Computed example of a mutant assay.
Amino acid sequence: MLTLSHTTVYVLDQDSAKEFYTNVLGLELRDDISMGAEFEGAGAGFRWLTVGPTGDPTRTIILSDCAMGRDPASAEQLRSLVAQGTMGVGVLETDDCERAYRELSARGVTFRQPPARRPYGVEAVLVDDSGNWFSLTERVAVDA
Rank of each mutant, 00 (worst) to 15 (best):
L2E: 04
T3I: 07
L4G: 02
L4K: 03
L4F: 06
S5T: 13
T7Y: 02
T8E: 09
V9L: 06
Y10C: 10
L12E: 01
L12P: 00
D13Q: 03
Q14S: 03
Q14I: 02
Q14N: 06
Q14W: 04
K18W: 04
F20N: 07
F20Q: 09
Y21E: 06
T22M: 06
N23D: 13
L27Q: 04
L27M: 15
E28L: 00
L29Q: 09
R30H: 07
R30S: 02
R30Y: 08
D31Q: 12
D32N: 14
D32R: 07
I33N: 08
I33F: 08
I33M: 11
S34Q: 13
M35Q: 14
A37M: 00
A37H: 03
E38S: 11
F39N: 10
E40K: 07
G41Y: 02
G43R: 02
G43I: 01
G43F: 01
G45R: 08
G45D: 09
G45Y: 06
F46M: 13
F46T: 09
R47M: 03
R47A: 05
W48F: 11
L49K: 08
L49S: 06
T50A: 08
T50D: 08
G52L: 05
P53N: 03
P53S: 07
P53H: 04
D56K: 13
T58R: 15
R59P: 00
T60E: 14
I61E: 01
I62Y: 11
L63Y: 10
D65C: 08
C66T: 15
A67I: 03
A67G: 11
M68L: 11
M68Y: 11
M68N: 15
R70M: 12
D71A: 11
D71G: 13
P72L: 01
S74Q: 14
A75G: 13
A75D: 11
A75C: 09
E76Q: 15
E76M: 09
E76A: 14
Q77L: 13
Q77Y: 10
Q77S: 14
R79L: 07
R79N: 08
S80N: 13
V82F: 06
V82R: 07
A83Q: 09
Q84C: 01
G85Y: 00
T86F: 10
V89M: 08
L92S: 05
E93D: 09
E93H: 11
T94D: 13
D95E: 15
D96M: 13
Y101W: 12
S105P: 01
R107T: 00
V109P: 09
T110S: 12
T110R: 14
F111C: 04
R112I: 00
P114L: 04
P115T: 02
P115Y: 06
P115G: 05
R117I: 06
R117T: 12
R118V: 05
R118G: 02
P119R: 10
P119W: 08
P119Q: 12
Y120T: 09
Y120F: 14
Y120K: 04
G121C: 13
A124I: 05
V127N: 03
D129F: 00
S130Q: 07
N132S: 08
S135R: 10
L136N: 05
L136G: 03
V140S: 14
A141G: 14
V142F: 12
V142L: 15
A144G: 14
